[in-house]
Design a protein around this nucleic acid. Sequence first.
DNA 1: CAAAAACCTGACCAACTGGTCTGGTTTTTG
DNA 2: CAAAAACCAGACCAGTTGGTCAGGTTTTTG
Lengths: 214, 214
Amino acid sequence: MSDSLSKKDDSIGAINRAKILTAAEKEFAIHGFKGTRVQKIADRAELPKTNILYYFKSKDGLYLALLQEILSLWNSSFDNAKAQDDPAQVLAAYIADKMEISRCRPDASKIFALEIINGAPNLSSFFKDQHSNWMNSRVAVIRQWIELGKLPDIDPHYLLFNIWASSQHYADFSAQITELKGHEMDQSEFANATKSLIKLILQGCGLTVPHEYK
Amino acid sequence: MSDSLSKKDDSIGAINRAKILTAAEKEFAIHGFKGTRVQKIADRAELPKTNILYYFKSKDGLYLALLQEILSLWNSSFDNAKAQDDPAQVLAAYIADKMEISRCRPDASKIFALEIINGAPNLSSFFKDQHSNWMNSRVAVIRQWIELGKLPDIDPHYLLFNIWASSQHYADFSAQITELKGHEMDQSEFANATKSLIKLILQGCGLTVPHEYK
DNA sequence: CAAAAACCTGACCAACTGGTCTGGTTTTTG
DNA sequence: CAAAAACCAGACCAGTTGGTCAGGTTTTTG
């Protein structure tokens, strides 16, 4: 019983799969799907190329497995927000979440961005539907906030787009940011950028920034 | 004289070059550099593949020529803003400019984004330097505004990143937006998105939205 | 402890694709 | 109007790359 519940799987297969996924994330983020060479993933994972194809049926299979893992990162605390919650609190936390993902998983973010830019050719309609439903329910909550007078009038779509865009930017465009700042952003700079972004967006829609995010 | 000045060049070569660049922009935006097939560009341009290689030495050459044209889109009215100008006016116009590019040249925006996400492997150090200098001079102007009390204290870098991110998002992530909205954004929706964005950002940094952008 | 399952890997290949070559035709020019 | 320049395009090729195969070894299991 303890075995079936504990997630830790240290079998050879599980370890190698993880190694491969980690290596693939780096490679796909830098070179895109077509530009990525299975051999390079193998080199990075320190395994022979044939093993990559052994664990994942094909390059496509590997990419899809990776993409699925990446999509799970879209879940957040905002998913369960209700009309009775405080918009300032919820939105600030959501922005902080998104920024944290940009900091910790920049390559995952890049792969997602590449996928969307290319017209989302590999995103299943299942994900699209799920995403669409999520959006509709979140838009509904934001509208309720507006009706309740907790939030000034603003188009919920554009608000969400803005949050996604500006937080993901720190991952996707890290090369540009590094170039312009003269160095890579460290953890404390990310903290500042997060504060700055929370202030800009909350103030931008007429909310007061909660003191813990100041 | 009139000949050397007039830009219109309707020679066969000029027409074909233009056809090829237009076709290439679409293909590279959808498939990325590696994923794009010269044959597909040829099909789209309705020319034999060999002609593509005739006009542009190589796939690389074509891509570089296209990229150079795209980079020129980064120029805007903000380039010449001075400390004595009104920040609200200047920033609103800049955001409007950027949104207009996202609407009219989404593929160009995507190619730029792909380039940056992949670590900017093809951006010459000349462009990087130029871009860096531009950034420094714009940051200086924003700092002057803050010193003059025309603009509340805000990190100029994060302000600019936010403008870029949120305006480019409408081009780069158009597939996601179309999916979530249920339809492609038309011109009037772009106008609304622009107003919404201007309000969010200006209000976010404590400025009043000029009446012509309301 | 044997047999089954999982894992490993070098050798190989078929398909694809950027690019060349050659021999044209059309357009421009002096 | 001739010759040079520009343009056109089919045939072809060499390098690359995802993927297969066959024959192993190691680990797990009953």
